[in-house]
Amino acid sequence: MTNALAVTGLHKSFGRTHALDGLDLTVATGEVHGFLGPNGAGKSTAIRVLLGLLRADSGTVRLLGGDPWADAVALHRRLAYVPGDVTLWRNLSGGEVIDLYGRLRGTGPDPARRAELIERFELDPTKKGRTYSKGNRQKVALVAAFASDAELLVLDEPTSGLDPLMEEVFRDCVREARDRGRTVLLSSHILGEVETLCDRVSIVRKGRTVESGSLAELRHLTRTSVSAELAGTPGGLDRLPGVHGLRAEGPKVRLQVDTDKLEPVLAALLAAGVRSLTSTPPTLEELFLRHYADTEVAS
């Protein structure tokens, strides 16, 4: 499988601020890739470098097999971009803007697809730019992007203004894009969205990639929550490696365990006789929080 996107050791500074400090990012063709990080981590800067809007200070960037700075025009015909903050021209209608973005990608949008998406996103394309709300401005950009049938969709927090119903429409559109073999880079703060949509995620912090892999792989590195009701008292649970936050109240036990150390813990619980057991894999949110908390301590 080829990579739609391969970034290694990307650096970008603005004056004394190091926005990107050795970022790595690999996105395989045909996958939906989550791009996570706290505010100011460098996600948008990285995306702008990928789009050839900013010039990298150092590092290698390959986008759809080309150089995003040198081959910007040719590459942009094959991708669609939705920024987190969509600004429109006050006196242009939404429909005009959709067609403009389509033409700027080379070919205009397919009329049937455009009409279908406008319908699904419940967008009124005749309204002028100044009268759209934030969510509706975002819909204009989303319709333009999904109508384009581009090979790569670069979405920078695309749902920050959408209502839950529209968010669902957005998720369907992303799934359809993947089913047609498109690649999606999705930067987001909405972890539930990333969790349901993305095949793999990369987490950036302070301009560096701190974690990258499939959700299953990432979960493997983190803790599973276990709560059990036991027949007897298990001995030495707190001495097992990888066990954290052990709380025992009579027959009830709650603990968290590093996911790769789960087996000995289960064995110990079984030995004590299990009446009920729930084991919850970490949510992305826990993963995210824990990761940052850890790095915070480390730095």
């Binding site: 809007l53 910007a72 903050d85 700027l104 990608r105």
Partner: peptide, 15 residues
């Protein structure tokens, strides 16, 4: 300044 150029330049638009 308004950020509109960003989305335009993400199209097939030369420098």
């Amino acid at each position: 300044e308004t950020g509109r150029q960003e989305m335009l330049s993400a199209g097939a638009v030369g420098r």
